Simulated scan of single mutants.
Amino acid sequence: MNPELLISTRTRKTPFSSRVAACGAKAYTVYNHMLLPAVFLSLEEDYWHLCEAVQVWDVSCQRQIEITGKDSQKLVQLMTPRDLSQAEYGQCFYAPLCDENGGMINDPIIIKHSEDHWWLSIADTDVMLWAMGLATGFSLDVQVSEVEIWPLAVQGPKAEELITRVFGEEIRKIRFFHSRKMNYDGNEFLVARSGWSKQGGFEIYVNDAELGVQLWDELFSKGVDLNVRAGCPNLIERVESGLLSFGGDMGYDNTPFECGLDQYVSLEADIESLSIDALRTRPVKTRL
């Protein structure tokens, strides 16, 4: 008999959990204390469909750590060795977060809303607690919280056509790793051209659970001819694409250099980063 995963407050559901179950999710994992579907048809069938059509992913587990206040940029910069001084509003930055020894803590997408408002769209570690500890230890004037945002990813070669049918032609103007606020039924969702696959697509940062479920249903109703299906990050596709998974392929004892993230470490920049001095002197091991 296969063991079951018992759902409790430790394994949080999402606004889309009922839709995911109705679409036939066969397996789940737990990511940031939240359910993340892992397989629908099979690993191989899900892979080929992702590469050929379009999928809608419930990636609500990609939690948003919100940092606000007059020292918010200082705190975010302290957490990463990547220089954020030239960050533009709405720009998405992939950035390693590192401790004082240069060890990896997480590898989120950082989104700048304004000088004093940032989101960290995190991988699977408790970044909020670390950020709160740094804020207290460095006496920074910030507020750190996990906000109620539930991302949906639309991924695959037909993703742009599908999402255009919902949000309109303006969506095509969004550049890679940039975002724009888009109107949806009287509400604004942040939409970014990004996602954890190399098949192309978008991530929609849903801030209203009820409208999010409506959006899920609309994506499916308008994507019938595109062969839209529910999907999830696919192990085959992400390994093939060279996308590392924090906690799986890399961990706390690895540096960004060992993970092939050299381009995201600003060794020559004049920045106040917790890890930058250690990374400038720490010996580099063989890459993963």
Rank of each mutant, 00 (worst) to 15 (best):
Y94V: 01
T14M: 08
L75Y: 08
K26D: 00
M34T: 15
R19K: 15
L36M: 15
H49Y: 12
L75W: 06
P81D: 04
E88P: 03
D99A: 04
R63Q: 13
E44G: 10
N32K: 13
C92E: 06
G102E: 02
Y31P: 03
Q64Y: 05
E44P: 06
Q62C: 15
V76H: 03
D58A: 04
R19H: 11
I65M: 04
T11W: 08
R82G: 04
C61I: 00
L97T: 05
L43E: 14
V39C: 00
T80V: 01
M79V: 07
L36S: 13
Q62E: 14
V59F: 04
C61V: 01
E88T: 08
E100C: 13
Y31C: 11
T9S: 12
A53C: 10
C51W: 00
E45Y: 07
Q91T: 07
Y31M: 11
H49P: 10
D46V: 01
N32Y: 11
D58K: 02
G24H: 02
K26Q: 07
A38Q: 10
S60Q: 04
L84I: 03
L36N: 12
T9G: 12
W57Y: 12
A25M: 04
D58H: 08
T9I: 07
L43A: 12
N32I: 10
T14W: 06
Q62L: 14
G24F: 01
W48Q: 13
C51R: 14
L78P: 00
V59L: 02
G102T: 08
T11V: 10
E45P: 10
C92P: 00
K74R: 14
A21K: 14
V56S: 02
L41N: 15
D46R: 02
C23Y: 11
E100L: 14
D46Y: 00
K13Q: 04
T80P: 07
T14F: 07
W48K: 11
A53F: 14
R19M: 10
F93G: 00
P96Q: 09
C98L: 02
A87D: 01
K26P: 01
T11E: 11
C51G: 00
A87T: 08
L84D: 03
F16Q: 04
F93M: 11
I67W: 06
H49A: 05
